[in-house]
Amino acid sequence: MGAVFAKSDSPSPDRSPSPDWLNLPCPVKYDEIQRENIMSLKPELFEGLRFDFTKPLNQRFSLSHSLFMGSVEVPSQGAQIIKVPAAHYEFGANLIDQRMMMLIGRILTDGRMSARIKYDFTDRFSVKVNAQLTNEPHFSQGMFHFDYRGKDYQTQLQLGNNAFYGFNYIQSVTPTVALGGEVFWLGHQRKSGIGFAGRYNTDKVVATGQFASTGIVSLTYVQRVSDKVSLASDFLYNWNSKEATTSVGYDYLLRQCRLRGRLDTNGCIAAYLEERLNLGVNFLLSAEIDHWKKDYKFGFGMTVGE
């Protein structure tokens, strides 16, 4: 308040140390505050072969075909890792209108189907729908997101099946710091939770901290060393199991390729290389090694189109 008065008292706000408190920038959405970290540290690693092909039919409409052959890990209670060979083909249709609408549908040969809809009613209010249908019972899900973007805040209401309700709000406090919170209620499991998050964002550094009453503390830090290189690290602590994990990684965005590497305290190392062979043709190499479990995953793939 005092700062606001001080600012309005001084006729020429040329001094950089006192920011314009009434014109703070709009923060990042609450569920996307860790996006830089996720982009650098969590690439889509896979094992086996992947081939993705996207064919645009006109400016808005495109079809996508994607093939996966490899092995998929089956969750097991023992220390041993069980892998099952798997292969599927995915057909997708995308309708993307730059201005207001996005419709994406996917269908897999094993019977899974998913749809995503995003519709902007105005430039501030938008609705997102995610739906997933499977042939296993109780795994299908649907989710509605209602987003409202204010001048220096963002808020979102979430409604899902199994009586899931959530609400979050994030507000810019200074030009670089945004603070937010969320509440959610899982009706079927009779669980509720509350979470808080903060994000510090400058041109060079993105640091976030998040805490939820489910017992998860998550801290992330991304440092942009140059426009090509960024280094990222994160720390995750689970209060219930008293387990902590830290990982560090690099993200190199070169002219012909993007290379991401990660090393974490579980003895797991991973690297993901996207090499651009030609315009619209990308070659993927994915590697993940778990030294303690002796689990080695290597994959290669191609992406054509886009």
Partner: peptide, 23 residues
Amino acid sequence: IAGTTFLILVVPLIIEMDREQQM
């Protein structure tokens, strides 16, 4: 462990940076 880690994390980086520099 050190060798495999180096092979996965550092070798591709060296190769790609070398290529970039050549370009």
